[in-house]
């Protein structure tokens, strides 16, 4: 076990910052926000890694349009899949290890824990500025396993994603309690799906109400990183695995993503 711990440190030794993306609620856009933050960091000239530990529903491979590549082994472990020639965005996902994409991972806790321990320690990330960890919803086996294994190296903190409605912020409040109990710093709260601008009449409708994320940040004394509107162009981009920043650099949605990423980067670097 001791040797394992050293290896673990070895593979993460050159990773400067580790950020978890958490949400108590499912389907609020954790994977979308993770993907967009990673792309924004990449455009800012950083080397970024994404670890997708959502065992039951890995979405990132599709969002980055990497398909289902074979994962290669090297001396120090699995080689992550690079999304660009410059190797500035690396990705490792359980989705890569499944033979059939429709196959369900029907695992109980202990098996998931073992898989995550391996995903955390056996990926040869190399040198990274930021490693983003995309998690499944909740506060259970996966989260504990990620924390236990990453702790040996470092965890800078967590970004919490919520949608504005009370049903979602209610779940995220519990996620905040999880962070407090496990001693994870909350880097900030992102409100996703904030408002929808009708493409026909430009009327902005707050489908899932508005301001819940900011209110929650105030209530719990956390940093509010910003809100991302509900944008069909963004959902289409992640569906087709296109780089939203490249396709729509002038959109309001991109400017909010980019400002969130800058605030986050600053807070990581000043730490």
């Amino acid at each position: 076990m001791q040797a394992g711990a050293e290896d673990n440190y070895g593979n993460l030794a050159l990773v400067k910052h580790v950020v978890l993306v958490l949400s108590g609620k499912g389907g609020v856009g954790k994977s979308t926000i993770t993907t967009e933050l990673a792309l924004a960091f990449k455009h800012a000239g950083k080397k970024v890694g994404i670890l997708d530990v959502d065992l039951c529903g890995p979405s990132i491979p599709r969002m980055l349009c990497v398909g289902r590549p074979d994962v290669h082994q090297c001396d120090s472990g699995w080689v992550p899949v690079y999304t660009d020639a410059q190797k500035s965005l690396a990705l490792m996902s359980i989705g890569f290890l499944m033979e059939d994409p429709d196959e369900a991972v029907i695992w109980r806790g202990p098996k998931k824990t073992a898989m995550i321990a391996q995903l955390v320690s056996d990926v040869a990330w190399g040198e990274l500025d930021v490693l983003l960890v995309d998690t499944p919803p909740g506060t259970s086996d996966e989260h504990l396993a990620v924390l236990e294994n990453l702790r040996k190296h470092r965890v800078d903190g967590a970004v919490l994603v919520t949608t504005p409605q009370a049903v979602s912020t209610g779940d995220v409040r519990r996620e905040i309690t999880f962070c407090k109990k496990t001693g994870v710093r909350i880097l900030g709260i992102v409100e996703n799906m904030s408002g929808f601008v009708c493409p026909h009449c430009t009327e902005c409708t707050n489908i899932f109400s508005k301001g819940g994320g900011e209110e929650l940040a105030k209530l719990t004394g956390s940093v509010f990183l910003g809100s991302v509107p509900l944008d069909p162009l963004l959902s289409a981009s992640v569906e087709e695995g296109r780089d939203f920043a490249e396709s729509f650099p002038n959109s309001a949605t991109f400017s909010s993503i980019s400002s969130i990423s800058q605030v986050l980067l600053k807070s990581l670097e000043n730490d």
Binding site: R108, G109, T139, S140, T177
Partner: peptide
């Protein structure tokens, strides 16, 4: 409403 217990399987 803030309660969270971190339970394994």
């Amino acid at each position: 409403p803030d309660d969270a217990v971190i339970w394994r399987g």
